[in-house]
Design a binder for these strands. Structure first.
Lengths: 215, 215
DNA sequence: TTAGATTAACTAACTGGTTAGTGGATAGTA
DNA sequence: TACTATCCACTAACCAGTTAGTTAATCTAA
């Protein structure tokens, strides 16, 4: 029998990793329901069946992407929160860390915004627990800063929103703008990361400063 | 010529409106691709074909939801921006107005976050233009405040993100928390709107205050 | 003032295309 | 040979959109 199969892919490639990255990219851009398993297979240049060989199903693949990203964020911010530095320094590091993580995993912000928008109905309890970790790390910095007198009294949830909200929205906006087929929007300009970081650090410190702005 | 009649089988029920509201609710919760036309029909308790009787197709229905919402936001913030009040007063009104609008059209924030996350690839130029309107209104308040010396120099895009980011994320978070099948999250607590408004107004004024926070 | 004509509003059942997931075969490797 | 990685071809379910036909409110004319 003559072999009618197409040639095998070179073993140097890590198929599982290829699938993961393609899935992260696509889920980030179009959401869970907006991406077909065939799309992922095509983007990763592998056969669709390989996805089911390496992952249980589409949902498990999606969860793995989200879990990977939340694990990275969670461990990093927990480390920052437990440093011996003063709270305002740790807060600045928290912000810089978030920007860096969004740079390393650019699919993180849009994916996160979607999960917030729909109340994370697809995530398992373990992954939800990782989301909590990030808030808890922020809350620790805030509470210790308040005890030390460098931060004012403030609703922690609102403070958290005021910091991660702009970071997520800005990152998602930039990412969407950089994708092909983007929309012409005066708002869709590039902001250099150093400028973004110092803006957000300044905004956070102004938000939390104990004295009123105009005595 | 005889006047065109306006027959209504059962005047108590407006089918088109029912479809619109069901679609807004579902698109907001699950996104364009996460909602089937059958879902909308079922939720509105009408036959699926009626959706195609009242709207061109699924995409046209989606666009109508987004356009309605952006029109309301656009006209309201344009009106606020053109008031004779000082810039800081207008900025506070801008924030209060956004919260009120999110209250009247609760599907607005999640839908908007999704559109930001994916770069609004489904929206037509007219709808995009409405999005620009909102930014332009904010920009006008900011620029006039800077000229009057009540606001400091700041990147307008970052300032915009710093204000609408928390508003959108917070509203989406609250909405997701109130939906059935929600997730248990310490962050998912209710924040009363007056508290939210005054927090965001204070945050915005602190962000834009000309003097450094610690002289 | 009533018998038909007209039309908006509606329904049930269908169609053609798509999608998540599978079964089974093949090839490289230890 | 046994095991792992890979691909082809298929299926069952689903989903956007259509079609043919029904119902009832209003209009027209004798």
């Amino acid at each position: 029998m003559p072999a009618r199969r197409s040639p095998r892919r070179s073993p140097a490639r890590d198929t599982r990793e290829d699938v993961f990255l393609a899935a992260a990219e696509l889920f980030s851009a179009r959401g869970f329901d907006g991406v077909g398993v065939d799309d992922i297979a095509g983007s990763a240049r592998i056969n669709k069946a390989m996805i089911y060989y390496h992952f249980e199903d589409k949902l498990a693949l999606y969860r793995e992407v989200v879990r990977d990203m939340l694990r990275a964020v969670g461990t990093q911010v927990a480390e920052i929160a437990s440093r011996p530095d003063p709270a305002d320094v740790r807060l600045s590091a928290f912000i810089a860390g978030m920007v860096t993580l969004a740079d390393q995993r650019p699919w993180f912000p849009p994916l996160m915004l979607r999960e917030i928008a729909e109340g994370a109905p697809r995530l398992d309890p373990d992954t939800i627990a990782l989301m909590k970790t990030v808030f808890i790390a922020f809350h620790r910095i805030l509470a210790e800063g308040q005890q030390a007198g460098v931060f004012r009294t403030i609703n922690p949830v609102l403070a958290y929103m005021s910091i991660i909200g702009p970071l997520l929205v800005n990152a998602a906006r930039e990412r969407a703008a950089s994708r092909p087929g983007r929309v012409d929007f005066p708002m869709f300009v590039d902001v250099p990361h150093p400028e973004l970081i110092s803006h957000m650090q300044q905004a956070a410190l102004r938000l939390l400063a104990p004295e009123p702005i105009r005595p």
